[in-house]
């Protein structure tokens, strides 16, 4: 009951955020985005033709009225048809969302898990050679541009210059083995790029926790290393860890998949969004922006509830 009340309050509190984000984005796409009118018309259109296309696209209505329509679309979760293909936005999203999630999830989870494990090992052997080696590799990983990583991995794993084990582009998935074939290289690239940042961040958090009094107490009572790291250190540093993971979710879903999908030619949400931006396909952009804002508010809510779950001192207020 307490959690339900809390959730309701948080969601209501998130409404201004959603309004702000959608208003600014909509303002930008209406006044600074590409105009689709002439792209849809043939050569030498008449004034009436222009007029009718503009009416069809909704360009002729006043801004505020169009914004209100947008809000109604968010509430009803119905974003109309794409300007470019005429396909319903909802069915485009329904088709591409699962692909994006399938591409991004393994790399996201493994990147964070590996980062945590490496950070724990490094922090436990603090300032020893293991720590120095791990931190050295992290800095190297952070310093290499994502583009170079993608190209290098494609050369090594996907071309006849290298091992040629995996396809370099596309998404032709009908079975688990197909999935593994297409997802492996993008996943490795995501992990490689995220790992350095994750490890460094988690190590800093864990090192701080290891200096705490209760960790010393645990040592003084003979706690073995694995248990010390799990019960005393990890369990107590979950709040910053959860914060980082949760807050990177909206970013990873949109921007992470944008880069990965473009470079690996995967038809996911990122690719669709990228195309919609360059072509001024407003219904798709409106849907993506609106849903991201909603996702963010939900993420905030879930993050707060998770805090309560991992730390008994936190109360939901």
């Amino acid at each position: 009951m307490e959690i339900l009340q809390f959730a309701l309050r948080k969601i209501i509190g998130g409404i201004p955020l959603i309004l702000g984000v959608t208003f600014i984005s909509f303002l930008l796409m209406v006044y600074y985005g590409p105009d689709k009118t002439y792209e849809l018309l043939g050569k030498n259109p008449t004034a009436e033709q222009i007029e009718s296309v503009r009416a069809e696209l909704g360009y002729d209505q006043p801004f505020l009225q169009r914004y209100v329509t947008y809000l109604r679309e968010i509430v009803t979760l119905d974003f109309g048809n794409s300007f470019s293909s005429g396909e319903r936005v909802n069915s485009i999203l329904k088709r591409t969302m699962p692909i994006s999630l399938a591409v991004i999830t393994p790399g996201f989870i493994l990147g964070n898990l590996l980062g945590l494990v490496l950070a724990l090992v490094a922090a436990y052997h603090r300032s020893g050679w293991i720590d120095k080696a791990i931190m050295g590799f992290s800095v190297v990983g952070m310093s290499i541009s994502f583009l170079i990583v993608v190209i290098a991995f494609q050369l090594i794993f996907c071309s006849s210059y290298g091992l040629n084990w995996f396809p370099s582009r596309g998404w032709d998935v009908y079975s688990l083995s197909d999935y593994l074939r297409f997802v492996t290289v993008p996943t490795m690239a995501t992990i490689f790029v995220a790992l350095g940042y994750n490890t460094r961040f988690y190590r800093a958090v864990i090192v701080e926790e290891m200096g705490r009094d209760h960790v010393r107490t645990a040592r003084a009572f003979g706690t073995p290393p694995a248990q010390l790291l799990y019960r005393s250190v990890l369990k107590n540093s979950l709040i910053p860890i959860i914060t980082r993971i949760m807050f990177s979710i909206p970013l990873v879903v949109i921007s992470g998949s944008l880069i990965i999908e473009t470079y690996f030619g995967i038809p996911g949400v990122g690719k669709v969004t990228y195309d919609a931006i360059t072509q001024g396909d407003q219904p798709i952009l409106k849907a993506v922006v609106g849903l991201t804002a909603v996702l963010f508010v939900l993420t905030l809510l879930i993050t707060d509830i998770l805090y309560r779950v991992v730390d008994p001192r936190v109360s939901l207020k």
Binding site: T217, A218, A220, R231, N236, D311, P312
Partner: peptide
């Protein structure tokens, strides 16, 4: 066994 100065922080807060 050892007991420490700061009882406020010497116990693990999440158990």
């Amino acid at each position: 066994s050892m007991i420490f100065q700061e009882p406020m922080t010497a116990l693990n807060p999440v158990f």
